[in-house]
C-alpha cells in the first residue's frame, strides 16, 4: 500500500497528533515512532511536518509542552493536551467520521453504477 499524499496527510495531521496526545503525553520522536508502528510504516511522519504542527497547536493553546528528564537520559520535551485541546480533538474526530461516511457513500454509489 502506498503512503498517503502529502496533502491528505497535511489535512489530517492536527487531528492525528491531538488524538495520539489524548491517550498519553508524548514527545516528538515518540509521536513519529508511534504513527509508524500503528500504520506498519505506511504513514511516516517527517520532522519537517510534525514540529510546525506541534507549534501551531501550542500557539492555539490546544496542547502544552514541558521538559522532563527520565532516568539518566537527556530531558525530553513532552506535549500534552489542554482542556481546549480535548474538546477540539473530539470535534475534529466527529468531523472526520462524518466526512469519511459521506465520502464512502459517494464511492459506494460510484461502484454500484459500474
Amino acid at each position: 500500500m502506498n503512503s498517503p499524499s502529502k496533502e491528505l496527510l497535511r489535512g489530517t495531521l492536527e487531528m492525528l497528533v491531538l488524538s495520539l496526545l489524548s491517550k498519553e503525553e508524548s514527545y516528538g520522536y515518540e509521536i513519529i515512532s508511534t504513527v509508524k508502528d500503528l500504520t506498519e510504516g505506511i504513514i511516516e511522519l517527517k520532522e519537517g511536518s510534525l514540529y510546525p504542527v506541534l507549534y501551531r497547536l501550542e500557539d492555539a493553546s490546544l496542547i502544552e509542552s514541558f521538559w522532563q528528564a527520565k532516568g539518566r537520559g537527556n530531558p525530553r520535551k513532552y506535549y500534552k493536551l489542554t482542556e481546549t485541546g480535548k474538546q477540539k480533538e473530539q470535534e475534529l474526530i466527529a468531523e472526520w467520521k462524518s466526512f469519511t461516511v459521506q465520502i464512502n457513500n459517494i464511492l459506494d454509489w460510484s461502484d454500484k453504477d459500474e
Binding site: Y27, G28, Y29, E30, E47, Y51, G73, N74, P75, R76, K77
Partner: peptide
C-alpha cells in the same frame, strides 16, 4: 527541538 529530537 531538532537537537532534542535527535537526542530522544
Amino acid at each position: 527541538d531538532l537537537y532534542s529530537h535527535i537526542m530522544e
